[in-house]
Simulated scan of single mutants.
Amino acid sequence: MLWPYRTPGIPDDLFEQLPGIPLSKREVRLLMLSYLRLEAHSVVWDIGAGTGTIPIEIGLLCPKNTIVAVERDSDVANLIRRNCDRFGVKNVQVIEGNAPDCLEKVQPRPQRVCLEGGRPIKAILEFVWDCLEPEGRLIATASNLETLYAISEGFAELQARNIEVVQPVINRLETRGNHQTFASVHPIFILSGEKL
């Protein structure tokens, strides 16, 4: 078994990757999972799933969850499928298409949403918020100021409650030549909110 542990935090290099396709780094992934506040029997949507790290971690942690991973590019969607196969994750449904249009007929509706990208981000946020079950949670990531502002504004307009925003600073020890040095992991904001 590729990851035989009951804890999250799969090393990044265990996932099959494609050049230019985003991968949520392990330490950031751990924070994202904690802000989702997963339950044993939930429906989780991951929009902009990239390499599929979040759906796979959720699938391993909560095998009775139903996870929908959304990606617009068929090559990236196939990458998610291959990574699910690598880890033996069976409870992830991969949907190819542009959000929010491709989500119109997806059932059942989610209790948790992870929004990791997509344009127009605010329109996607508003659509999935309407789909989100009452008492549901939505987390979103932002790697630039414009996305951070759009998500923050969207949360305010949607009257999300218990909003939290974190920007973790993570450094990893790396070997460069004969020396070991700390290198910063790409900075990202994680925003979370709850629906009344």
Rank of each mutant, 00 (worst) to 15 (best):
V70A: 00
L61C: 09
N65I: 07
N91M: 11
N91V: 12
N78L: 09
D73E: 15
I54N: 01
A69M: 05
P55S: 01
D101G: 15
P100Q: 15
C84Y: 03
P55I: 11
N78H: 11
C62D: 09
V92M: 04
V68K: 03
F87S: 00
T53A: 11
K64C: 11
T66K: 14
V89T: 06
G52P: 02
I56T: 00
T53G: 07
D75E: 13
I58E: 03
V89G: 04
E71I: 04
F87G: 00
N98W: 03
L60S: 06
I58G: 03
L60Y: 07
I95Y: 01
K64Y: 15
I58T: 00
V70H: 01
N91P: 08
V92K: 04
R72Q: 15
D73P: 05
S74T: 15
E96G: 05
I80T: 01
V68L: 07
A99D: 07
K64Q: 14
S74K: 03
K64R: 11
G97P: 07
E57S: 06
L60Q: 08
L79S: 05
R82P: 04
D101A: 15
T66I: 12
A99R: 02
I80F: 11
S74A: 14
E71D: 13
R81Y: 08
C62T: 08
P100C: 10
T53F: 06
L79D: 02
G97D: 06
V70Y: 05
V70N: 00
N91D: 13
T66D: 10
N83C: 11
D101I: 09
V76S: 03
V92I: 10
I80L: 07
P63T: 12
L60W: 14
N91I: 14
P55M: 09
V76W: 02
R72T: 13
I67D: 02
R81G: 11
N65M: 12
V89K: 00
C62Y: 14
K90H: 12
L61S: 03
V94H: 03
T66N: 12
Q93L: 13
A99S: 13
N83E: 04
V70L: 10
V70M: 06
V76Q: 02
G59D: 04
K64I: 10
